[in-house]
Amino acid sequence: MIRVGAALLVCVVLAGCNSVSSEGPLAGAIDGDAGQSGAELGRKNVAVFDVVDINSRTARFVSDYVSSALNRRFGIGGPVGRVVIGVGDSLKVTIFEAGADGLFSTAQSKQVSLDIIVQPDGTAAIPYAGTVKFAGKTLEQARQAILAALASKAVEPDVIVTSMGTSSRTVTVSGAVGRPSLVPLDLTGEKITQVIAKAGGPVTQPYETYVTLVRGNRTGTVLLKSIIEHPTEDIYVQPGDQIFLVRDPRTFTLLGAVKGDGRLEFGANDLNLLEAVALGHGAVDEAANAQGFFLFRYEEPEIVQNLLGAARFQELERKGMVADSKGRYPIVYKFDMSHPDSLIVGQTFPIKSRDVIYVSRHPSVDIRKFLTLVGAPLNIASQGAATAANLGQ
């Protein structure tokens, strides 16, 4: 009977071990899966990623990186191109003549001003010059065309062509702006922030307003805050561009051994790792693994390649690491908060929208859970063994 009681005790212990619930992976599990393919892990459709230990150097590199979503990634930046006249534009053509007996001069005036609108076929009629092609020409080219047409008719003519309205040069600005409208462009070229200002400006804070630029079949989206802080992103717009402003508060997800997990809003212009954890009321002292703070992110390819190195990056691609729809790669940043300088490093590491911060639990937590779960069954088993021993006497 004693052997039966001992066997019962072993069964209860094993059952208790299997019943320990899981609250996400331990730090060792994350480190162990890093850089492993599905074949190596014995699982199908595995998301291949790597873990990067964050120190002062890597934190500074990630913080200093400037993403050029419009100017570089989509290749639609650069200065304004050649400004030309278009269909529907309003022009003032002023013609001067040297003599009082000219076609356009009188005793009182040696000039005449004509208001014209470029017609759908790109032309407009000028007296004595006939039909003149304006569309596709600069103001100077239009001036020369009129002069050439009047050369043998007017008395030493001279011409000035002035733009009065640029109906062909408009940009659509809509969404979270003060006055959604068609914004006319001037001849010197205007940037994104300038046309947004013409449309009444943004109605929400720059740190939660996204700007989408549509040009032909290309689209680029960037945070308005980034355009303001990085002038290279404030690119010149072109006629026919569409600009949409959308309020989309930046959020991150906080999980694991924290006092308040969930999806949280930034609520500020910037947010670092320490501030993000603080928004969840900090880690649970008796449960959190100070050496296992992780940040999961789809990161810019330039950052990933720099942190991992070309050889490691190519190896992970061969193993199945793939980019998301925006060309970013999965990466996991690891923070060891047991070191004093982690409080400095954590202040310099920026949080991005849609980041997932996971605070892993300490391995001792599972041991405590196990002991709690099997404590009561062990007492029952001990009582059963004692009863069996008494019966055997």
Rank of each mutant, 00 (worst) to 15 (best):
D115T: 12
I30K: 02
Q141A: 13
N306P: 03
R169K: 15
G375S: 08
L279H: 13
R215C: 02
I95T: 00
R215L: 01
P239H: 04
T212I: 05
K369P: 00
A98K: 01
V284S: 08
G102H: 00
D31V: 05
T106R: 08
V52E: 06
N45Y: 12
E275G: 15
L187P: 00
V13A: 13
A199N: 02
T387Q: 11
A59R: 13
R312V: 06
Q238Y: 08
S353C: 02
A388Q: 12
G282C: 06
L139E: 07
Q242I: 13
D341K: 15
A27R: 13
I85F: 02
N18H: 14
G88Q: 07
R3D: 05
G262Q: 03
R318K: 15
S168T: 06
G256Y: 07
V345K: 11
A6K: 14
A129R: 06
P79E: 11
L103R: 04
F335S: 10
E229H: 11
G130I: 00
F49Q: 07
V13W: 11
A199G: 03
S152I: 00
V66Q: 15
S67R: 13
L271N: 05
S22G: 11
V87I: 10
L223T: 12
L41A: 05
A149P: 01
F313W: 09
E23P: 02
G102K: 02
S174M: 04
T348R: 14
Q141D: 09
D366Q: 10
V173K: 01
I160W: 02
S68E: 15
S382P: 01
L103Q: 04
N269Q: 14
H339E: 14
D53H: 14
V83D: 10
H281I: 11
L279Y: 10
G262K: 04
T204S: 13
L70R: 09
F296Q: 06
P127T: 10
S342N: 10
T221D: 01
Q238A: 12
V20W: 03
V4I: 15
F104R: 01
F296L: 14
R368Q: 07
L391E: 06
N289P: 02
F296R: 08
V284F: 04
V20G: 04
I85M: 04
K137L: 15
P25R: 10
L391W: 11
